[in-house]
Design a protein around this nucleic acid. Sequence first.
DNA 1: TCATGGTGTTACCGTCGGTAACCTACTGTC
DNA 2: GACAGTAGGTTACCGACGGTAACACCATGA
Lengths: 192, 192
Amino acid sequence: MAPSVVERRAGLLEAADRVVQREGSAASMNLIAAEAGITKPILYRHFGDKSGLYRALAARHTDELLVRLRAALVTRGGLAARTRATVAAYLSAIEENPQIYRFLIQRAAVEEPDVRGEVEGFVRRFGDELAAGIRNEPSLAGIDELRATVWAHAIAGMVQAAGDWWLDHPEVPRATVVDELSALLIEGFDLG
Amino acid sequence: MAPSVVERRAGLLEAADRVVQREGSAASMNLIAAEAGITKPILYRHFGDKSGLYRALAARHTDELLVRLRAALVTRGGLAARTRATVAAYLSAIEENPQIYRFLIQRAAVEEPDVRGEVEGFVRRFGDELAAGIRNEPSLAGIDELRATVWAHAIAGMVQAAGDWWLDHPEVPRATVVDELSALLIEGFDLG
DNA sequence: TCATGGTGTTACCGTCGGTAACCTACTGTC
DNA sequence: GACAGTAGGTTACCGACGGTAACACCATGA
């Protein structure tokens, strides 16, 4: 039986995924088409242009990561537990698949200026999600709206950068990074 | 009198700078060469390849920014004052020239995998500088080495991401962002 | 006068993203 | 059963890119 258009699309995205993981930023439309066993124009019929394909690919992984982060954000056990769980969820995700993670970061940065704003980058969406989490945080009830927003994007960038550094220092245990980041977030650095 | 090779190089970099500021990521070798009043092969003789030119260009601005950050890191008046000064220095720099700042971020992300490690990205260098600042911080004397490193890269990413968000929300005063980031860094978010 | 070396150019290569034109089946209809 | 229409596919091309080889100019110094 012939696959539906949505199944087809999913298959193409999986092929693109394999190429991105294998080739990194050298993943070209030709390579992806070959991996899927077809030729270029079909890709363009499905995704419009390269940016469209990359967006669809990024949305997949971003959505999946956001699901995990949302779950961590409502962990029981108080603010400290939720903080640790969220940081740990992020680090686990990038540890499982660094290549995809690098792809997401790169896509966010390389997007054309005129598309900026329409399509939100990866870290920005992470920040939005955190902002919602902070506003819903019981122990932070009544927090200033702007403060929550700035903090959220700050924390998103902080976890991302620390995670990026950590990927290049695998000798450091994940738990240590989680500990240090959580401590900084919760207590600040004025206490040592 | 004929310009020396280093003067020549500087002139080429200035031309490249203008093109990057004007064209953003569409700055091609042909455009840059035209802006400098010469043709492509000369650029290649001076910088090897496009990545080399971009690296030279990035190093220029990164170095300049690091000078300002280093100065802020030794501001008198205690830890809080130094924190505010450093954050403010970063935000001022990206506000003065968002196009160049975006170029630096993008370069860091898009660098080929096999070059990673050899050439440090922009945020990573910022993190290294912060790490040194934290280790030299009197009020944090005796801080654990690993903790200082993780915190430094975390703070670098935090300021970068918040700054990036701020560039898209110019209605928020810089002082507000500085306040919120400094508060989060110094006291953490457990106090409101 | 002639070799030499730096500075510059033109003209090309392979590859990329993207598209127009065509080709090939399968469908329903008279 | 011949035939139009259409979904799904391919080949062959376009302009632009990064990068390079080959050649031209022009000062110098023996």
